[in-house]
C-alpha cells in the first residue's frame, strides 16, 4: 500500500514511450510494402512489442497501444483522441510513420493506476 502512495507523483514517461514505439514500428515496417494478408500480423507484433517493453519499465501505469495501418492510395484518414482522465499525470503519445506504400499511426495511452 505504501509503495502505491510513493509512486503517485509519477507522470507519463513520454520519452521512454517515444523510444519504445519508434523502435517497434521501424523494426517491423521498414522496407515493407502494404500486404493485406500480413498487415494484421504486423499490427499485432508492433502492439505486443510496445506493451512488453512498456511493461518492463515497471511504471505505475496501465498502457493501451493502438495501431492503424493504411494503404497509400490518395485517400485521407483523420484521427483524433479525447480522454477523460487525470490531465496532469496521464498522457498519450502519437507516432506517425510512413513509407512509399503504407501509412502507420501508433497511439499510446498511459493511465495511472
Amino acid at each position: 500500500m505504501e509503495d502505491l502512495h510513493n509512486t503517485e507523483e509519477a507522470t507519463f514517461p513520454v520519452d521512454d514511450v517515444r523510444n519504445v514505439v519508434k523502435d517497434a514500428v521501424v523494426k517491423v515496417l521498414e522496407g515493407k510494402a502494404y500486404d493485406e494478408d500480413k498487415v494484421q500480423e504486423w499490427i499485432d507484433v508492433i502492439n505486443s512489442n510496445v506493451i512488453k517493453k512498456l511493461c518492463a519499465l515497471q511504471t505505475p501505469f496501465k498502457y493501451i497501444s493502438t495501431t492503424v495501418i493504411m494503404e497509400k492510395k490518395l485517400a485521407n484518414l483523420h484521427c483524433s483522441c479525447s480522454a477523460l482522465w487525470d490531465n496532469v499525470n496521464d498522457g498519450n503519445f502519437v507516432f506517425p510513420w510512413e513509407n512509399q506504400s503504407l501509412f502507420c499511426l501508433t497511439t499510446i495511452f498511459g493511465v495511472q493506476l
Binding site: Y63, I64, I69, M70
Partner: peptide, 26 residues
C-alpha cells in the same frame, strides 16, 4: 473509470486499412 476515446475517419477509396490494439491492464 477513466476513458480514452479514439476516432478515425477515412475516405472510402478502396484502400486497405487495418486497426488493432493491445493493452496492459486489469
Amino acid at each position: 473509470y477513466k476513458y480514452c476515446v479514439q476516432v478515425m475517419i477515412g475516405e472510402q477509396k478502396g484502400e486497405g486499412v487495418r486497426f488493432g490494439f493491445r493493452a496492459l491492464w486489469d
